[in-house]
Amino acid sequence: MARRKKLYEGKAKVLYEGPEPGTLVQYFKDDATAFNAEKKDVIEGKGVLNNRLSEFFMTGLTQIGIPNHFLKRLNMREQLIRQVEIVPLEVIVRNFAAGTMAKRLGMEEGTALPRPIVEFSYKDDSLGDPLVPEEYIIAFGWASQQELDDIVSMALRVNDWMSGVMYGVGIKLIDFKIEIGRVWEGDFARLIVADEISPDSCRLWDMETGQKLDKDVFRRDLGNLRDAYTEVARRLGVMPTNVTHPPSKPTLIN
Rank of each mutant, 00 (worst) to 15 (best):
R235Y: 08
G164F: 03
A34H: 08
A155E: 00
T59F: 08
A143S: 02
F120T: 01
E134I: 12
E90V: 09
M76S: 13
V158F: 12
L204D: 09
S248R: 12
V152R: 15
A32F: 13
A34Q: 07
L15T: 00
E179S: 07
N51K: 06
E44R: 05
M154W: 00
A32E: 14
L204I: 08
V193R: 00
L225T: 14
L74I: 15
N36W: 02
G65P: 15
W161K: 05
M1E: 07
D216E: 15
M239I: 01
V84H: 11
P246Y: 13
N224T: 08
P116F: 07
N75M: 01
E135W: 09
C202K: 03
R52W: 08
T111N: 12
Q63V: 05
V232W: 03
P247K: 12
G141A: 10
R3E: 12
P88I: 06
K172T: 12
T244F: 13
D216I: 07
A97R: 10
G65Y: 11
I197M: 14
A34T: 03
N36A: 15
L173A: 11
K13T: 13
D41H: 11
S198R: 13
D160R: 15
R234V: 00
D227C: 00
E179I: 07
P250H: 02
V169W: 04
P133Q: 07
A143G: 01
A112Y: 09
F218H: 14
S126N: 11
R73W: 04
F57T: 09
D124A: 15
D214G: 14
L53F: 03
N75D: 15
E134C: 05
V132D: 07
Y167T: 14
L74A: 02
L191V: 08
K215V: 06
E78S: 13
E108F: 04
L61W: 15
K40F: 09
R219I: 03
G210Y: 02
R77M: 10
Q63K: 14
C202T: 15
D214C: 13
A34V: 01
I117W: 14
T209C: 05
I86A: 09
E147P: 02
E38L: 06
G22H: 04
G128F: 04
R82I: 10
P240W: 04
K103T: 04
G128W: 03
W161T: 02
A2M: 12
S201Q: 01
F28V: 08
S54F: 03
I151Y: 06
E231M: 06
F176W: 14
T244L: 13
E119C: 06
V217I: 11
G181Q: 03
F140N: 10
F56K: 10
L127D: 07
E109I: 12
D31G: 01
K123C: 00
E85I: 11
Y16E: 04
E44F: 04
L105I: 12
F120A: 01
F140A: 06
R73D: 02
G168H: 13
L156N: 12
